[in-house]
Amino acid sequence: MAKGSGRHPQPDPDSGVEDVTMLILEWLGEQGVDAMIRVDAERVREGRTAWTFAASGGPLDGGMRADGASAAACMGSALERLRQAGLAVPF
């Protein structure tokens, strides 16, 4: 994550967030949040944004989704949205 001037770091697709994705998913599970990240092969073939993160349950009010052109961009966006929802993800 790149350092931002706000309360939370801003997502940086080049930061290696994909290296901690499994740790993030495990941590979310420990918080009672059902979460997954997936790639859609059809969207890859069509040149569309193919990566999706989805989460629901636990402390989240309703579900949430984040999309990205790469796993890193998807998870960077997901982390930002999770923090906006009040989850202090420690990564």
Rank of each mutant, 00 (worst) to 15 (best):
M64S: 00
A2W: 02
R81D: 15
G57D: 03
I24Y: 06
A72M: 08
R7V: 12
G6C: 02
P59T: 01
D19M: 08
E26D: 12
G62F: 11
Q31A: 13
V89F: 12
Q84N: 11
R38D: 00
L82G: 05
Q31M: 13
V89T: 07
I37V: 13
I24V: 15
M75K: 00
T52W: 03
G16D: 06
A71P: 07
A2D: 06
R7C: 00
V33L: 14
W27M: 07
G6S: 14
R48C: 04
R38F: 03
D12P: 01
S70E: 01
K3S: 10
M22C: 07
M22H: 14
L28Q: 04
L79Q: 05
G47C: 12
G57H: 08
L87M: 10
A54R: 13
M22W: 14
G63P: 14
A71W: 03
P13K: 08
S56C: 11
A50S: 15
C74T: 00
R38C: 00
R45C: 06
A66T: 10
G4K: 02
V39F: 00
F53A: 10
H8I: 03
P59L: 09
K3P: 03
D40W: 01
D12G: 12
M75A: 04
L28D: 02
G76L: 07
M22L: 13
D61S: 12
V20D: 07
D40H: 05
E80A: 15
E26M: 09
V17Y: 05
H8D: 14
P59H: 03
A2N: 07
E18A: 12
V20P: 07
D14P: 06
Q84S: 12
V44E: 15
E80P: 02
D34A: 12
R38V: 02
D67G: 13
D61M: 11
M36Y: 02
G4W: 02
P9T: 10
P11V: 00
W51V: 05
A72R: 05
A41C: 13
A41F: 15
R45I: 10
D12F: 13
A72P: 09
V89M: 07
H8T: 13
L79W: 03
V89D: 11
A73I: 01
V33E: 14
E18T: 10
A50E: 04
F53I: 02
G32D: 07
S70W: 01
E80L: 15
F53Y: 12
T21P: 10
L23A: 15
P9M: 04
V44N: 11
T21G: 10
D12R: 10
R38H: 03
G63K: 09
A66V: 13
R81Q: 15
R65E: 15
H8A: 08
I37T: 11
P13E: 06
A71Q: 12
A50I: 02
T49I: 12
D19E: 14
H8S: 15
E42D: 12
L82V: 07
P59N: 05
D19L: 13
G68H: 13
V44P: 04
P9N: 11
M36P: 02
A55N: 04
